[in-house]
Amino acid sequence: MCRTLARAAAAAAIAALALVPGSPAADVPPGDMLAAWPHPKGYVCYRAPGPITIDGDLKSAEWDAAPWSDAFVDIEGDKRPKPQFRTRMKMLWDDEALYIAAELEEPHVWATIKEHDAVIFQDPDFEIFLDPDGDNHTYGELELNALNTTWDLLLTKPYKNGGRALNGWEIIGLKTAVKVQGTLNDPRDTDTGWTIEVRWPWKGLRELATFTGAPRDGDQWRINFSRVEWDIQVNGGQYTKVKNRPEHNWVWAPQGVIDMHRPERWGYLQFSTAKPGTATFKPDPDWPVRDALHRAYYAQHAHHKKNGAFATAADLGLKDIADRLDVRATRTGCEISWLEREAKQPKVRYSITDDARLWKH
């Protein structure tokens, strides 16, 4: 009888919750956000065999040791055609930093923005998103164009959850370089593309995670990459964007929606001390749980949008996982936890809040 009353009280508390100002009222999920999502792509990042010079030139023995990633795809995945031009990346690491290289095929390389921390994606650009602890909150973003103009920013949490971009954040010790295979901003010829090198020091990641040094062998972080491309035409000997056409978004790990700020769908970066080419990416054994909680998170927001209140686990419409979910009211919203019910006493394994923060207990 006491358990029944407790469940009823909890259900009443959850149903009575109204979305507080600043919470993600607009976070209404597309249908595929409620379906199981396959394990994202993974990349094995080997230790650099020697010092790396950041000059934009990828023709070195050090970079030869790093495997290229798969070619980028549309941000929505198979819903959209494959990108017109190839984009791929590779990574290495050492005791001081993470190194990222990228190759962007482009017959007409152009860029106009020269001011640091401007909105770089108004030009064609390359973007890096990094969340070392994989909690969806406090992650870094770096954008750069073919002029090597950069924009580094820290996100307190995703925009859909009311997050803010802190433009004043600077990546300590960051080094970037770009090399154009052709001529920049000259429509009279056909270019091959442009290449990028980035040195992101571990000390430049202190605000994003609790670690104090280089990662360990086997550690996995969440990461993704995006390329913004614009349709252009030539007017008066200069490149101009075709009016009223949105940008193309080509990414390493597809998001399913046009929004890079869904860290739960980013790929995995796995650090390795093995000989380059000998290690295998190991899928995250917790992926099914992480994905299930994100499904519940999106279902909760869909329910709130429709009914003006949060749902209990039974009312989320996720019959395949409902018995593993524990939904509780919090001071500002709700929290959903995944229960290990095989034990004598159900044990909480992971939890997610209504502003998408995820953590392991």
Rank of each mutant, 00 (worst) to 15 (best):
Q255A: 07
G267Q: 00
V257C: 09
L318V: 07
L316T: 12
W250S: 03
E264S: 05
Y268H: 07
T312Q: 09
P283C: 14
H294R: 13
A253C: 15
P285F: 07
G267S: 14
H294V: 06
A274I: 05
W287G: 02
E264T: 03
T312V: 14
T280P: 04
A296G: 08
V257E: 05
R290N: 03
P288W: 03
D326Y: 08
Y297V: 02
H261C: 03
H294E: 11
G256A: 02
H261N: 07
V289D: 02
K282F: 09
Y298H: 15
D320E: 15
V257I: 13
P263Y: 06
H304G: 01
A314W: 01
D259E: 15
K305Y: 07
G333R: 09
Q270S: 15
G277C: 15
P254V: 02
T330Y: 12
P263R: 00
R328Y: 13
F271P: 02
R328F: 11
G317F: 09
Y298T: 14
A329R: 12
K306F: 08
A309S: 15
W250Y: 13
Q300P: 03
A299D: 02
Q300M: 15
P283V: 13
M260I: 07
R290F: 04
K305N: 11
T332K: 12
R290L: 09
P263G: 06
G267Y: 03
P263C: 13
A299G: 04
K319G: 11
Y297A: 03
F310A: 02
D286H: 12
Q270F: 02
K305G: 10
D320G: 00
A296Y: 04
L318T: 00
F271V: 11
Y297H: 11
T278Y: 09
P288V: 03
A299P: 02
V251P: 00
D323I: 06
K305I: 01
P285W: 10
D323L: 12
Q255D: 01
K305H: 12
R265P: 00
